[in-house]
Design a protein around this nucleic acid. Structure first.
Lengths: 232, 232
DNA sequence: TATCGCTATATTATCGATAATGAAACGGAG
DNA sequence: CTCCGTTTCATTATCGATAATATAGCGATA
């Protein structure tokens, strides 16, 4: 409950109950979920007024959410034409994985400097949440916790300007994985895999931690043959 | 005049004359310039209504521009509190350079597949524009053309989802460089340096081109001792 | 029948006003 | 003098309506 980002998402994920917490965030979260799950498939058209009607809010509010989604690279806005769900191509996805791998790997030595029991227990809790989501087969919730885990960890590196880039990579990774996997059944395994990273950190071994995260990133998504290598 | 991004900027840079071309873009471009040049220093507060008054537009229009700036990581928006110019720290800047180096380096083999005389002449022209800006000591205009050069080149790699990440890196690199250099006088040299990249590409030598861009990125900004290596 | 300019239409972009909100200033109780 | 609740204030967030604009479709012309 300390991660602002996780809070954000919960704020609207819990939308079933209350409905405060910035209207535009609710729209943002809901649309993001539908795009990531493919309910809104690549190339689909999004019309501001339609969304506004659906959520019972004004066009301006939707607009803000759509702009935020375009920041994440989930939609593309064309002036006076409309907003379109972004394509999800394999080449981009692979490059995003590499970028993410590099960012997270390089961050570990910095993370280690600030790694303490507080962060450790927070991350442990997040892993437990992942497991719970996995057991309920809630793929999307699992990715939400996964994102929270990696961003929370990265925050310890204290590189605020880089954070949004990692976030963007994570979103794209997750979207691509969800869109290109016929309901794979190793969800629980995915959650458990995070423990290795935590263990390496607890050990205080920078080299081991770096290797752990690099391995983690390159293996979560069993994309084609070898993701790590330059493709084609 | 083919690059949409360059067009954007010119559209409002030329604002002295006409004033069409999306009001919010004008605000966006002007504020971006002021932030990059330090006119609006890190931590400065930006109030939506003040900007609106200054540009003679409505708060909504400013709002859109500010959201876009926060996407670029140039400002941070805090709910109901205000918008603040983002800090520009060395650690972040260094990591951004590394990310950029990796992205651009890896892209070269893809770029080479599509590199033709049209792109070559476009980039040549951009270099000439850089030289012109350098001779007029217009640092900011130089960075604008530099951005156009690198993005235009990267577009040939056809990795649309990755493009915004590169753009973000470029913006941060330029801002940090401008903010931390007491009017350095090698502007013209900076422009000329791009020719090596073009030459390597024209030669069709992937390895050489990759090395050229990597070298280019790590040397443009003579940050501290060694940018390439992990710092601290 | 192909091309060019015009118009109709769908959609965003902008506006001005009002509501919501978080933080700081204030004041009273202990 | 300090702590805690309340009010006030600066600022964003949202709304509903209007203006601007890019595209598609149509019709006239050669």
């Amino acid at each position: 409950m300390t991660n602002e980002n996780l809070d954000k998402q919960q704020g609207s994920t819990t939308a079933s109950g209350r409905r405060s917490a910035k209207r535009s965030l609710t729209v943002y979260d809901d649309l993001q979920r539908e795009i990531m799950l493919g309910v809104l498939p690549p190339m689909a058209t999004i019309v501001e007024m339609e969304i506004a009607e659906r959520f019972g809010c004004s066009q301006s509010t939707v607009r803000e959410a759509l702009i935020a989604l375009s920041n994440d690279g989930l939609v593309e806005r064309r002036s006076h034409r409309g907003t379109f769900v972004a394509d999800a191509r394999a080449d981009d996805a692979h490059e995003m994985i590499r970028i993410r791998r590099d960012i997270e790997s390089r961050s570990m030595v910095r993370v280690l400097r600030r790694f303490g029991s507080l962060l450790r227990s927070e991350l442990s809790e997040t892993i437990e949440n992942m497991k719970a989501a996995a057991m309920q087969d809630d793929v999307y919730q699992l990715t939400l916790y996964d994102r929270a885990f990696h961003l929370n960890l990265f925050d310890a590196a204290d590189l605020p300007s880089v954070r949004p880039m990692l976030q963007r990579c994570l979103i794209h990774n997750h979207r691509f994985k969800i869109l290109n996997s016929g309901s794979q059944r190793d969800l629980y395994e995915t959650a458990v895999r995070h423990e290795a990273i935590l263990d390496a950190l607890a050990e205080g071994n920078a080299k081991k931690a770096t290797a752990a995260i690099a391995h983690h990133v390159t293996t979560i998504a069993e994309f084609g043959p070898d993701i790590t290598e330059e493709d084609i």
